[in-house]
Design a protein around this nucleic acid. Structure first.
Lengths: 138, 138
DNA sequence: ATCCTAGCTTGGACATTGTCCAAGTCAAGA
DNA sequence: TCTTGACTTGGACAATGTCCAAGCTAGGAT
């Protein structure tokens, strides 16, 4: 993810230690962390980093299209560092775990013009729901 | 939606004025309200109804499959009274408006077994994103 | 190398959304 | 009409996110 830091610098980002740490945390864990989980891991490397900075930085990364925001359960948003790779999500209804999945076909094709109501559609997100192997066990 | 109240009574629900009002609010507005919006409208008809009861009742209706919970933005959950009619959602990125849409085909069919990772999959939700006619205007 | 300054960070207050609980109330069967 | 367990209430609390004034600093300018 040093690419990421490079890309950001060429876009006028000031490269601070806090931002570097947030980027490293997102890079290190290819899971979908909540903002507070990102903060907790960031604190391990930079003890005085504040929650506000983590929120700010995540918001900026989302705005720049480097990270995706995933709202699966109406609770904490999760952040997906895999933004440059089209994919959808599989969410466990038991424990909340999220996996990336790659369904076949283009979901936009399933929506005929008569069902678009004049919207300019930019994308589609699919959330598959179910129980993960652990939670499905009796 | 008096059907709804009937169905609930046969399932052992005690039929209180509070629950009746919540059901009426959901029936009256075929939009997707947040819990607090439901509460605000319920208060107009039954001034002393509490937030806790609205949350409880919505949760029960979701548990019984009479109402769907929609988490589109990581903020407040919205409640969709159209639970007995399979549909997906079209969300305006500008103003947050939600429309029900009916895509063709079954999204589950697009997910091959090799992409299911041992999950027992129960359903799929598609959220189309774009700009509504009003927000798309320059 | 040093200085400047806009942009970044901080801590904490505050807002929003949701959950929980003990005490009181009431729908509906006996 | 009585009884009782289910329901409701208000308020405290929890989780998540936003905002702001004050101080700090990265990186260009000198």
């Amino acid at each position: 993810m040093s690419d990421l830091l490079e890309r950001l610098r060429t876009r006028g980002w000031r490269l601070t230690s806090q931002r570097r740490v947030v980027a490293e945390v997102l890079d290190g864990e290819h899971v979908h962390l909540t903002a507070d989980e990102v903060h907790a891991r960031a604190v391990e490397r930079l003890p005085e980093i504040s929650r506000a900075t983590v929120y700010n930085t995540l918001g900026e990364l989302v705005g720049l299209g480097e990270v995706l925001e995933v709202a699966t359960d109406g609770r904490a948003k999760r952040y997906d560092p895999n933004a440059h790779h089209a994919h959808q999500h599989l969410v466990c209804s038991g424990c909340g775990a999220i996996r990336d999945v790659h369904p076949q076909g283009d979901p936009l094709a399933a929506l005929p013009a008569t069902e678009r109501f004049g919207f300019v559609i930019s994308g589609a997100e699919i959330t598959y729901r179910g129980l993960c192997p652990d939670c499905a066990r009796p």
